[in-house]
Amino acid sequence: MRHPSVLEYRRFRYLKTSLFFTLAGLALYIYMRPGGEAVPYPFGATVTGYALGITAAFFMLILTLFGLRKRRYAAGRSNLNGWLSAHVYLGLAVPVLATLHCGFSFGWNIHTTAYALMICVVASGIWGMYRYTLVPRAITANLGEQSLDQCLEQITELDRQIRRDVLELPDEINALTERALAGTRIGGGPFAQLTASGERARTRLPLKMLEARGAAGKGDQGRRARDLYALLIRRSALVERANRDIRLRAQLQFWLVLHVPLTLAMWVALIAHVTSVLYYW
């Protein structure tokens, strides 16, 4: 049986909720400005504006509460799938409601700052959602049943074998191989993780050299060279998989590193926005 996606939760209950509020807001907005006469200066400070703004703010509150709710997985009786489904769909409604709330008026001020941060939050959310539809599958396809640690252990074991075998081979291959092994980077800082890809050029140097010398080696030397080549190829594939795993997982985490701080900054901006409006009533 196919596992139902959170997006289809309860037959798209929250998609319908979100669409209802979006279309209602849109209808209210269009009704309130036939020919632009009723609201010649579309600001938030009309009955329509307040209604749209309060609805959007209420949605944002629910959306933010999801962040707290999901950290307590077992808490309460409410269904986390439902929360996530609501989070996605209500989150998509907020830019529409907020845009109607501001009546397409933008400026260099805290009001538009709050709006811009909200757009960034939603954009990072959409990106995250998109990553979540692709990345977990890619992670499984990449490492299969293996864990990253098992993969790293395999690499360590291969290194040991390669170091032993390469001792019998000419100095230049030995040196290149040692540099390649020592120079292999798996993981690292956030940037390195997000951009981690295959192996660095120098780690391929021994392979290139072995390729250049061809399989011409005779006797023990030739056999050893061919063995080393096979080992290096295996190792290269493993390193690439490890790095891809790290990159995919980093991408899966990174959007949240944007999503959460942007959300908190947005709340500060939103509080400033509401306060400023009421302060200068």
Partner: peptide, 29 residues
């Protein structure tokens, strides 16, 4: 052994969030 995840690299969404909130608080309020 290098950091293998953003968490190991010291990247915490909530820590970054607190930082962002403080920056926003200073700049916007």
């Amino acid at each position: 052994r290098r950091p293998m995840s953003l968490k190991e690299a010291g990247f915490s969404p909530w820590a970054a969030g607190v930082l962002a909130a403080i920056v926003a608080l200073i700049c916007l309020i």
